[in-house]
Design a protein around this nucleic acid. Structure first.
Lengths: 104, 104
DNA sequence: AGAACAGATAAGCATGTACTTATGTGATTC
DNA sequence: GAATCACATAAGTACATGCTTATCTGTTCT
């Protein structure tokens, strides 16, 4: 069940920070470390977890490995969230805006 | 940062099962245990975590405590997710449907 | 081929987490 | 008011997790 791995992956604040950074644009593991106080192996391990959850995907580029957000994982979160739409408060205007964006 | 507590709360499959059960309708802690093989203290602890994350709220009713989904937590997940809308694949039709619902 | 570099993997360790049993607290019933 | 019930809290334990240092793999450059 990958849903489990997604939530487990996002449960760690460091991993959410990495993911957020990647959302601004794909980059390699070394570039990702800049600004985040983290060792090389730790970053590698976090990326492996994010990758296993389908939140991130990698692509070898020479001796670098470029990482980028994988929409797959986000889609699964969206699906999970959609199950509980009956409870979303009407005041979440952000989501309405979002829907309009998607309808274009 | 409650965002952290939300994802940590949902990282546990038992807690997600509890939350899902509550989404079908509010009920007390004993009723929640039915069908889920879990001890009374464990259930109580899980509910405390879900409550701390803003995913669930409680209401004393005599010697029972009724639990129900708290939209607050779901709203925060939606907000988190909305930050990455640029990456949502267009094929998530479910969300479009959902937006139409909200526009009504 | 060998040095240098980007990154992954291995192994060990300290802390966190989910459970257990035991007990405490508040409300109801007899 | 004493027993009972619904639930919370305490304390202990086994396992998971995130880190560390050390080492390995794969690629580039001279």
């Amino acid at each position: 069940m990958i849903e489990n791995e997604i939530f487990r992956a996002l449960a760690d604040p460091t991993r959410r920070a990495i993911f957020e950074k990647l959302a601004a644009g794909g980059m390699n593991a070394s570039a990702l470390r800049e600004g985040i106080d983290i060792s090389q192996p730790a970053m590698s391990q976090h990326l492996a977890v994010l990758r296993g959850a389908g939140l991130v995907r990698e692509e070898r580029q020479g001796r670098f490995v470029n990482y980028e957000v994988d929409p797959e994982g986000l889609a699964l979160i969206a699906q999970w969230l959609a199950k509980y739409r009956a409870y979303w408060p009407a005041r979440i205007e952000a989501l309405k805006v979002l829907l309009k964006d998607m309808d274009q």
